[in-house]
Amino acid sequence: MCWNIYSLITDIYIPKPDRIRDWVSQPKANGYEALHGTVMGPHGKWVEIQVRSTRMDEIAERGYAAHWKYKTGSNQERELDKWIKKIREMLESPESNALEFLDDFKMNLFASEILVFTPKGHIKTLPTGSTTLDFAYDIHTEIGDKTIGAKVNYKLVGVSHMLNSGDQVEILTSDKQQPQSEWLTFAKTAKAKSSIKNALKAETTNRIEKGKQILELKLKEYNLR
């Protein structure tokens, strides 16, 4: 059915064959199923399309576990609840060293996705609510660290600008830029948050080392060491 609908769309609009993503024949690991494609829209811009059934849409919006729970009986439902409880307890355990990353990851695992484009037409898949900063870190950590803004659909925006499906994004960077602590308030993806935290930690370590060096010089200057 999805391919039939896709065929009807491409009879009207010119498709970009190398941008087809068939998650109907081979669903994602989290159960996501859909047929994604890119066509030239009526205004001369590439437009991303998603074709999926009602069942596929339910999984995409609510997550596979929620869909499975809704479709099954009470006994299986109780077993699923027990499994979810165990996963929740594991994630909430203070003994886990990777707690923060796992917390960010579980927020993204079943989240709805958006598809945005690079200036060259490459597709990037990000969770709904992602910003230009998330897009930059998805390209490369060094690009994310030096991001000062972006051009979204040829308009200048800040690093906290929220993206929508179909946006074309060009990241603007500066060698003088460094990750800021306030970036954590609007970064969405686990990769972006982890990269920002690592950069801030490294900067703090560098400042401590410089402070130690200055202190040692002063101690030598006053013959206190």
Rank of each mutant, 00 (worst) to 15 (best):
I5Q: 05
Y6G: 00
S7Q: 05
L8W: 00
I14D: 09
K16E: 13
D18C: 02
R19K: 10
R21V: 12
W23V: 00
N30D: 15
A34Y: 07
H36S: 02
G44E: 13
V47I: 08
E48T: 08
D57S: 14
A60Q: 07
A60K: 08
E61F: 02
G63Y: 07
A66S: 15
K71S: 09
K71W: 02
G73W: 00
S74T: 13
R78K: 15
R78E: 15
E89D: 14
I114R: 02
V116H: 05
P119D: 03
G121N: 09
K124L: 15
L126Y: 10
L126G: 06
T128D: 11
T128M: 13
T132A: 04
L133T: 12
H140I: 09
H140Q: 09
I143Y: 05
D145Q: 11
Y154Q: 13
G158F: 08
S165F: 06
D167F: 04
Q168V: 10
Q168C: 03
D175H: 02
Q178R: 13
K188Q: 15
K188I: 05
T189V: 08
T189I: 01
A199Q: 12
L200V: 06
A202L: 11
E203R: 12
E203F: 04
L215W: 00
K220I: 01
K220H: 12
